[in-house]
Amino acid sequence: MNHDAKPLLSARDLAVRFNAPGGRVARAVDGVDIDLAPGEILALAGESGCGKTTLARTLLGLERPSEGTVAFGGSPLRYSTRALKAYRRAVQLVLQDPSGALNPRHTVYDAVAEGLRIHGIHDNERERVADALSRAGLRPPEKFFLTYPHELSGGQRQRVVIAGALVLEPQVIIADEPVASLDASVRGEILALLLRLRDELGLAAIVVTHDLGLAWNIADRIAVMYLGRIVEEGPVDRVLTEPRHPYTQALVSVLPNSPLPEPVVLTGEPPDATAVPGGCRFHPRCQVLAGGLAEQAGVDDECRRSDVALGTDHIACHYARTMSTATT
């Protein structure tokens, strides 16, 4: 992985809005910049409803942004049928639920070969399918060709889904909660597989997860989302051992062996993308503001009134910026 390389996949000023009942508008993604380097694994983390799945779908071209751009290899993504088909060969999705992703009437061979057939790739189909299954850890691959999904374990089904992505030789995999439906004993195997694919094939990956422990085990970098925005971003070991945004601190505080002294219990209502508060969008639930620390630093009014976006310091927090300035 080369952090200095040009981004393979990136987004600038990305916004995705949906109409909601009652004439309201949900700001599911609300001004996101993101970069994925070649060979990098980026974890996209946050609570349910924070916008991470919508962001992933937009990066895949499955949702069209209301504003902003997605770029692959430096070229803006185009939304014609032909352009999207070519793009989806290079950027593949791995779904959360392998049972839902696999047609129960298709054999493993047909499930993996489906991508090749959609893209009109007819050369060496059998060899390509066997190679993809083998790379996904299903060996010998021929043993699984005529097997049906119901005959496989959950971990084996997830490996078939991964093989279906690998068969097209993508440069990027976007995995949405790739181990959420699996037993704990199998989770480690699938995470180890994703790491091995990165090392062997140079694959880059975005892993969508609410599980910071998973991010710690697999990612190079992490982007923490809250209410449609990335609020903190950086190397995973730094963010999870020295979290600076109060929201990240709350998430990290409940991890086993957390570096923070005690758990942070967030107050207030869970985020609602149709009612984004003014000021810092986290301020109604912020323990730093509620505890008086923001007032001591002289930024409590800013927290309530002034919006704050991710800056060159990779954090979206008035208080954290003030404290980092005070210590430099």
Rank of each mutant, 00 (worst) to 15 (best):
residue 224 V to K: 03
residue 138 L to D: 02
residue 212 L to F: 09
residue 81 T to V: 13
residue 43 A to D: 01
residue 303 C to A: 00
residue 26 A to L: 09
residue 325 T to D: 13
residue 92 Q to V: 07
residue 41 I to R: 06
residue 117 R to S: 04
residue 95 L to I: 08
residue 275 A to P: 00
residue 282 F to G: 00
residue 73 G to P: 05
residue 209 T to V: 10
residue 197 L to E: 12
residue 161 V to C: 15
residue 171 Q to A: 14
residue 113 A to P: 02
residue 161 V to D: 08
residue 200 E to T: 12
residue 314 H to S: 15
residue 139 R to Q: 14
residue 293 L to E: 15
residue 321 R to I: 01
residue 136 A to R: 00
residue 221 R to W: 09
residue 15 A to I: 14
residue 328 T to N: 14
residue 181 S to C: 14
residue 18 F to R: 12
residue 280 C to S: 05
residue 169 E to M: 04
residue 214 L to K: 01
residue 267 T to Y: 04
residue 13 D to F: 01
residue 161 V to P: 10
residue 240 L to F: 06
residue 300 D to G: 12
residue 225 M to Y: 11
residue 176 D to A: 02
residue 286 C to N: 12
residue 93 L to E: 05
residue 29 V to D: 04
residue 276 V to A: 01
residue 226 Y to R: 02
residue 204 A to I: 10
residue 182 L to Q: 02
residue 149 P to H: 04
residue 284 P to Q: 08
residue 71 A to P: 08
residue 169 E to L: 08
residue 61 G to R: 07
residue 21 P to K: 10
residue 165 A to Y: 05
residue 267 T to F: 07
residue 77 L to S: 07
residue 277 P to W: 02
residue 28 A to Y: 04
residue 190 I to C: 07
residue 108 V to L: 07
residue 1 M to P: 14
residue 135 R to K: 15
residue 309 A to E: 14
residue 200 E to H: 05
residue 307 D to A: 11
residue 31 G to K: 08
